[in-house]
Design a protein around this nucleic acid. Structure first.
Lengths: 125, 125
DNA sequence: AATGAATCCCTACAGTTGTACGAGAAAGGT
DNA sequence: ACCTTTCTCGTACAACTGTAGGGATTCATT
């Protein structure tokens, strides 16, 4: 359990974009967000500022703009977030969520094969 | 996309308890919450009231207390919630989340077998 | 009947979140 | 050199969240 303040949904969405590309400016994030997400430059800026204030990102200056990067391990944060989610929605049991995902959200043949592989691999220990 | 107002994390946690047992009073929910969740009776009461205000639950009176039940299909709400979560954290791709869950959260042999079964079943169409 | 416990209804309140505006500086085009 | 665009920084603000107190009422027990 970390003592960082929790991320809100939108903050998480933004943080993940930064993590994915290792570093990003406000504009990068804005452009990476899905079209459907009608959101202002200033708003993204606020999210990034708050993420830094909460200790999830750091920024360094480059010319007139700021470049943000992770300041805690993203995988760790994602793990905690998923755990919290599973805790609240599925009584802390990951299996029901996995079943839900496989069943409800579309899985193609390739995905299924891939998962079989993963299961086999896991059973080797 | 429904037009109901979104559920907060805590509201979702409470709603799920009601759904699981088909109906529940404030006290039922309070007792069903994990020990670790130090939370006041009054607070639970507020969550249930808000859930009703938001249209997720309805209540009927029974003696001195109110009994809450779902007023929208829980599975639907859970589906939407998971979709939103996957959208923000995993770019809308369920597979990476499934992999994360299988890998990071403990899966026992039974769980693995169960999943294999599910995959087989899915491939039959 | 009086007391205590359990409920509901109403109210509160600080902190968080989503969303963005305005001012001012810097960079780029003409 | 000036206008436009693009940034940052500080500020705002209503709605939502988590958390619960107070008062009224009712049920159970002494």
């Amino acid at each position: 359990m970390s003592d960082r303040r929790a991320l809100s949904k939108s903050e998480m969405e933004v943080a993940r974009i930064v993590w994915d590309r290792r570093q990003a400016t406000v504009r990068d994030v804005l452009e990476a967000l899905p079209e459907s997400r009608q959101i202002d430059y200033k708003t993204v800026q606020t999210f990034l500022r708050r993420l830094e204030a909460k200790g999830y990102l750091t920024s360094r200056r480059s010319g007139r703009s700021l470049i943000y990067t992770a300041s805690v391990r993203p995988t760790e944060v994602i793990k905690e977030t998923v755990e919290d989610f599973v805790g609240r929605l599925f009584d802390g049991e990951p299996l029901p969520l996995v079943e839900h995902l496989i069943r409800e959200q579309g899985m193609g043949h390739e995905d299924i094969d891939r998962l079989r592989g993963l299961l086999d691999e896991l059973e080797q220990e």
